[in-house]
Design a protein around this nucleic acid. Structure first.
Lengths: 136, 136
DNA sequence: TTTTTTATGGACTAACACAATCTTTTTTAG
DNA sequence: CTAAAAAAGATTGTGTTAGTCCATAAAAAA
């Protein structure tokens, strides 16, 4: 029932990038040190975020990463689902052939569906526009 | 980010017991068959629920389990925390020494705390008084 | 052109949690 | 005494998590 460490790192990395001055890139090394995230693990995370279109990467000596959109256009849900896949609070909201389907009237599935929608809405409302930019 | 199967089984087992006629006990075998939960696994779950005071057990030939309280007094949160321990949506709401503490002003911790309180409230509101009793 | 600094890609692994299973013991009604 | 039930605990299989390692590619700088 807990967010993966990988997604938590991803959120922290994106927040970090969102506070950099416009146009400035963050490298794996700089983000890793600033946010205390294991370097190689972070490399994987940033690659995933790039593949899913949340970040843009630049190779070479002056390379690094920046957000692909405005900070306020990137949400927690975007980042979490890019890393861990679709958010589901229970197996029964995730698979067609769950135990709920076998019984005529599983009265618990509805509860989980409502919670899930509500939680995902909160994650979708939370974006990276609110973090203060680093000056210079 | 998903409820454990063990907790899901526990909720289903408690719901099953909550629908039995007053005074009637449910055995591991009967609940296991009715809810399609692996017998030995269920045995462990019902034992845990008994230890935490949600169920009452009776040994011997006519033994079995029943709720320790009225169905409406047992909540989803009670059952889930009895099985999986305290509900936390993120490591940083769970441990004192999380990454959030190291930085002056971790602006993400607050978000997770609010979500967690809200989710736990929903789990606490959901109880077993709403399921129809089996006649006879 | 060579070196240096960066990302990319993929294989690999250690540890842990999850989902059971197996076996033995205890209880108690008939 | 026997049968049917719970209690208790050891063990196991499997998958996920949380990384690590290493080789390759790109691109700017020297």
């Amino acid at each position: 029932m807990r967010l993966s460490r990988k997604s938590d790192y991803a959120l922290r990395a994106v927040r970090h990038l969102s506070t950099l001055p416009k146009g400035k890139l963050g490298s794996i090394n700089s983000v890793s040190e600033a946010e205390e995230i294991p370097r190689e693990f972070l490399a994987k995370i940033l690659k995933d975020l790039t593949r899913s279109g949340i970040l843009v990467s630049f190779q070479g000596v002056t390379g690094g990463y920046r957000l692909a959109k405005l900070p306020k256009e990137v949400t927690f849900l975007n980042v979490i689902e890019a890393i861990d896949g679709p958010v589901h609070l229970n197996l029964c909201t995730e698979t067609a052939n769950c135990s709920c389907e076998k019984f005529d009237n599983c009265q618990m599935k509805g509860f989980w569906e409502i919670q899930e929608v509500s939680f995902k809405k909160s994650l979708q409302r939370e974006h990276f526009g609110k973090y203060k930019k680093i000056k210079k």
